[in-house]
Design a protein around this nucleic acid. Sequence first.
RNA 1: CGGGGCGUGGCGCAGCUUGGUAGCGCGUUCGGCUGGGGGCCGAAAGGUCGCGAGUUCAAAUCUCGCCGCCCCGACCA
Length: 560
Amino acid sequence: MTRLAEYFLPTLREDPADAEWTSHKLMVRAGLVRQLGAGLWTWLPSGYRVIKRIEAIIRSELDAIGGQEMLMPVLQPAELWRRTGRYEIEELFKLRDRKDADFVLAMTHEENVTYHVSHDVRSYRELPLILYHLQTKERDEPRPRAGVLRVREFTMKDSYSFDRDTEGLDRSYELHIEAYDRIFDRCGLRTYRVESDVGMMGGLGAHDYMAPCAAGENEIALAPGYAADVEVAVADPQPVELPPPLDEPRRVPTPELTTVEEVSGTLGVPAGALIKAMPVIVNERMVLALVRGDHRLNELKLRHALGTEFRAAHPEEIEAQLGPPGFIGPIGAELPILKDAAIEGDGYVCGANEPDAHLIGVAPGRDFNFEEVDLRSVEAGDIAPGGGRIELQRAIEVAGIFKLGTRYSEPLGATYLDERGEERPIVMGSYGIGPARTVAAAVEQGADDKGIVWPRTIAPWDVHLVRLGKPEDEAARTADALYGELREAGAEVLYDDREAGPGEKLTDAELLGCPLRLVVGKRALAEGGVEAQIRRDGAAERLPVAEAAKRALELLDGID
RNA sequence: CGGGGCGUGGCGCAGCUUGGUAGCGCGUUCGGCUGGGGGCCGAAAGGUCGCGAGUUCAAAUCUCGCCGCCCCGACCA
């Protein structure tokens, strides 16, 4: 029963003042969601309809690969998390009960599910297993942002695979890839499956599903046959024309020139001919990381190269150990030096470690020693593995899949007995999807200047039926009858039977963005029937009243 | 956690610099007109000015503290 006159669908004429992104603005304006606090969102009836449709698609595809749905609690004993070492995660909500026992609010459910599997799975005969649930996750986010995109409480579909060995894990992983590809395809979302960092999850490998759109927090590198998060992307750099090499470095004055642009501009060399030196502190010791002047240091790659956390050096530390910030370089530095692999050849420019001076004609190896590693983020135009040119795009991470290996099964004692009676750790994978992010990504990707344009499969309703004129008009009787016929035929229909002006009703329909709009009014009836309009392309058509319902369903079928 | 911004009827905002009757648009309610792109006329309801302390005869306005929200960064399954 969805008559708008009695339905809770509060639309807004103006954008909310605190919204920056299209999806945030439109989801609030269209009455899908309302905010309760920072990173805390309520799904109103229309928005929750979208969520439920996405969840139904997820369930059907997971069931299809043999997933078994269950439900695990959000409130959990801290003990489990201590055993896997995740209790220390800052984002984990921690609390105590009245007896002063420690609890956490789960951010995912590896500990929980592995605990049960460790108790109740003992034989290789019981493997493999795919278990999943749709459950609330809690995260003490440092900075919630962008509407429902980064929040402190959200629902996630998370599944977990349990296999006898890594070959089994590979199969479970592949099954999830196939299921996820189908899920996002069915949701009408454009996504890329990209290589990603395994993160704090630990494990053997990971991919993310990225939905490109402006509001995305992540950046992905795309080329024909290649897709990766820029955090892990690799590519051959674009060549740079180096100045002629010298027999030895020569000091040149560069008064007050501290940026790459200033130095390269003044010396008349390309930015890529400079060596940027970034001093970082690792376990109290300074290390110098070098990248080309036209490249960006990739902090994740640096962390991997160092094998541990690091922080940027403070200006005083730089001054004390190297020279004035803005004029530092590797030559003469008594420090471990990591050089990015893109710094090739001789003739570079770098800081002289003294005020207002740089060195030209620098030759790595001859003039300083280093360890060579991949430290830079790829740039648009670089050559990807496979030969294509890299293009960078922002994207929303809507799903992530991880090969966990024995990261959780070992500390939690999840083992099985194999055919020979030997005890072995279960090999695990975990696979998440964020339905709310999927909604936001669909809104971002489909919106136009009038409002949302839903993919047909996840729209809150198939048909937005608008009745114009007074309730006692002839048109109202026609609209009432059409509403009944459409529902009879199985269509999900939102019927705007409010006593409101045509402008308000029509703009609301465009804002909400259901795939097919039907308008019943005096004018349309006089001109031969009901007006049908496809939201996506605006194509309009008159449907004779007698066959309006039938024809409307045909039109629906023709949309995506 | 660092930087910036904001907090005034449901929503969007003005008022604050220079202290003295709390205002505008939209929305809401009632009556009437209108009825294909948020229309018109008339009447009305609705605000502890985020919270607390201070200064003052007097605080939305000045001072201090706190809280909340947004943005950038740090951070991030």
